[in-house]
């Protein structure tokens, strides 16, 4: 059998120390993706460091930021009164993801770390630059209906599958990472990477680092928001396209806005140009349409996913419509 060592730790410090000792060690949190990857032979860590007993499950407001511990479950975050009241977009995005059973064990940190669901990545008999650099991209000229239209590289057109991360990108979250020397903080939008020449890397987490918590600024966009996920069935399916939209409305004028898209890139895709266009404008259908058009700059289809070139702007428009109509 492919043996691995199972270790359990109760502090971030010892977790990082264990991680440093072995290049082939991985953290185990909810395990909803990692265990599947091990069963499919995609990954074979020699050590699993169970971090579920590290006390990182807080959800609290400190100053004008909401802190969410990395080991908080998706369900705990989605159902928390503070999140529902102040970050309802995040709650909605979480509830659009996976199934109730998975959300009950999947953690915030694990959600960020989940791998793509590209079929070529999971089948070890197929080429995949993400799984095995240099073998080629099976999806590029194959079945790419689920794949990226933005920020693609010649090496990889996979998408990041998370819903939660789309909302966090929109909400200007920050990630606190711990390492052996201390902590560092990075913007959530800089956590995940584009595939570029290194599709094997999903994010900028360093080999000796551990996700500790999220810090999300309290905002003024908790009234007009919507997370719209378009998928092949009504639940338990990954997004074809999803949009997180939230704005502040004064006399039908948009004074602040956040827009991000999922299912379209190797990382959650923030729509900065669309946001800039809408800021200060009336919340009208024609402005929404113009914003959606701006969002599509640089989009490129690969055949079976060409429909996303139409679906993506439509979803942006509908998410904005629904955010506007929220009383």
């Amino acid at each position: 059998m492919i043996n691995f060592q199972y270790l359990r730790t109760t502090s971030a410090k010892s977790a990082i120390a264990l991680l440093l000792k072995d290049k082939n060690a991985k953290f185990l949190a909810g395990g909803t993706n990692l265990i599947d990857l091990m069963k499919r032979g995609v990954t074979a860590p020699e050590k699993l460091i169970d971090i579920n007993h590290v006390p990182l499950k807080q959800i609290e407001q400190i100053g004008n930021k909401i802190h969410i511990g990395a080991l908080t479950t998706n369900t705990a975050v989605a159902d928390h009164a503070l999140i529902k009241e102040k970050l309802p977009l995040l709650s909605w995005a979480l509830q659009a993801g996976a199934s109730a059973q998975l959300r009950n064990v999947a953690t915030v940190g694990g959600n960020m770390m989940q791998r793509t669901r590209c079929g070529y990545f999971y089948d070890t008999e197929m080429p995949c630059n993400k799984r095995q650099p240099g073998t080629g991209c099976g999806a590029m000229e194959g079945f790419n209906r689920m794949h990226a239209i933005f920020g693609t590289s010649e090496k990889c057109i996979a998408v990041h599958p998370s819903d939660m991360c789309v909302a966090l990108t929109a909400l200007d979250a920050e990630v606190v990472l711990a390492n052996s020397k201390g902590e560092r903080k990075i913007a959530f939008k800089d956590f995940h990477r584009l595939a570029g020449d290194t599709p094997q890397l999903d994010n900028n987490l360093k080999a000796d680092e551990m996700i500790i918590r999220l810090e999300i600024p309290v905002n003024n966009i908790a009234k007009n928001y919507h997370y719209l996920k378009v998928r092949d069935r009504a639940s338990y399916a990954f997004a074809l396209v999803s949009v997180a939209a939230a704005f502040e409305l004064n006399n039908n004028k948009i004074t602040d806005i956040r827009l991000a898209m999922g299912g379209v890139a190797h990382k959650p895709w923030r729509l900065t140009a669309s946001e800039n266009f809408l800021k200060g404008k009336e919340a009208t259908l024609s402005n929404f349409e113009k914003a959606a058009e701006l969002a599509m700059t640089g989009a490129k289809g690969f055949g079976e996913n060409n429909f996303k070139l139409k679906l993506a702007p439509n979803t942006i428009i509908e998410a904005l419509n629904l955010a506007k109509s929220k009383a």
Binding site: R117, G119, G142, R233
Partner: peptide, 25 residues
């Protein structure tokens, strides 16, 4: 059930990607 005809292998041979209706459907 989707096959990559270059390889003759199924691409969506699991319950996450082969979509049977769920209660919400």
């Amino acid at each position: 059930s989707i096959i990559d005809h270059r390889y003759g292998r199924y691409i969506n041979n699991n319950f996450a990607d082969y979509h049977v209706p769920v209660n919400a459907d």
